Amino acid sequence: MSATFDTQLPLPTAEQASQVRVPTRRRYLMCAPQYFTVEYSINPWMDPEQPVDTGLALAQWTALKEVYQQLGHTVETITPEPGLPDMVFAANSGTVIDGVVLGSRFRAEQRAAEAEHFRRWFLRNGYRDVVMPTSINEAEGDFTWTGTVLLAGTGFRTDPGAHAEAQEVLGVPVVSLNLVDPRYYHLDTALFVLDDQSDRPQVCYFPGAFSAGSQKVLRRLFPDAVIATEADAACLGLNGVSDGHNVVLPLEATALGGALAERGYQPVYVDISELRKSGGGPKCCTMELRG
């Protein structure tokens, strides 16, 4: 399986062409879906009655990992553990900013053991400032670093108290956002950052996933955001990963890819159909190691 780089893109306007998108090399942590299956349901995407092809999930994950490497990024891996089928969704097990690690504490007991395996990985790999949270905190599932502020989701998984804890541990300003649609149970299913390297970070989000007040906050913070459609969100198109130029998206998110191309970004499409059976996409599989 290979990713698709969209070369049939509309020509940008003169204003858009002047906005040169510059990729930055990233370092990611991923976990192979060796034991992936859907044997319980903790979000609306999961149906234990639906057949799951673990081999296909592994092939899709491998293709995603290879895309990152082809784009020049470094990918670290953690050994998957039997009995933890959702460990592939590495983003939920840590938030790393400037080398400081805030671990996770899962709401669902089925995933609770994942946090300790990731904590040990950080310590084995030279991280010394590792803090495990006291509040329910599903890490980059609900914490999104924009380069200036940490956007923090709540409503279904992460407790509001975890937002204050993240600010204390990571030493960055936090903006709370309330999620209201259970299909978009984590912030990273409804919003992702396109550019975190400038004074004016750019994001993409689906307004319908957020409360009215949170929508107002997002409009105030990001007046030039890319606004996704219901169809974009429904294929987990908002679970994307951007390096400032290349944007990795689910194969079905072509409308969103077109909108991003008009802003000067390069869509890179990957097939995550099997992993989506557990409510995950590219970002869910990808924890960013910053600093």
Rank of each mutant, 00 (worst) to 15 (best):
A112F: 02
Y185E: 09
N92Y: 02
D196I: 06
V175P: 05
T158Y: 05
M87R: 01
H163L: 14
T146W: 06
G141P: 03
R200V: 15
S176A: 14
A166G: 00
A115Y: 11
L191S: 05
L151W: 05
R105Y: 07
G155K: 07
Y127G: 10
V101P: 05
F192Q: 03
F89R: 01
V101T: 01
P173Y: 10
S135K: 12
L194I: 10
Q202L: 15
L191N: 03
G147L: 04
V96P: 02
D188V: 07
P160S: 12
P182V: 08
L177I: 05
T158V: 06
S93V: 11
L84E: 04
L150P: 07
R107A: 15
S176C: 11
Q197L: 03
R119E: 14
R111P: 06
T95R: 08
F210T: 03
A113S: 14
P133R: 10
A190I: 05
L84Q: 09
Y205L: 03
W121A: 06
N92Q: 07
M132Y: 06
L123T: 11
R119D: 13
H163C: 09
L150V: 12
G83L: 03
G208K: 09
L170Q: 10
G103A: 05
L123I: 14
F118A: 00
R124H: 13
L177E: 06
P160W: 08
P82G: 05
S104F: 00
F206N: 04
D196H: 14
M87N: 01
R111G: 08
Q202D: 13
H117Y: 14
D129C: 11
L187Y: 10
G155N: 05
L102P: 07
T144D: 11
F106H: 14
R107M: 11
G171H: 03
P160N: 09
L191D: 10
L151C: 02
I136K: 12
W145S: 07
F106E: 13
R111W: 08
A90D: 06
A162H: 04
A108S: 15
D86F: 02
D181E: 14
S104A: 15
A113F: 06
P160D: 03
S135L: 01
Q167R: 14
T189V: 11
M132R: 11
G155F: 10
P160I: 13
G126H: 06
G141R: 01
R183D: 14
L177N: 07
R183T: 10
E165V: 03
Y184W: 12
V149A: 09
Q202T: 11
D159L: 12
P182E: 15
D195K: 08
M87G: 07
V175R: 09
A162K: 11
V131H: 15
T154G: 09
S211K: 09
P82W: 01
S198P: 12
I97R: 02
S104P: 05
A190N: 00
E109A: 13
V169T: 12
F206A: 09
S104G: 13
F192A: 05
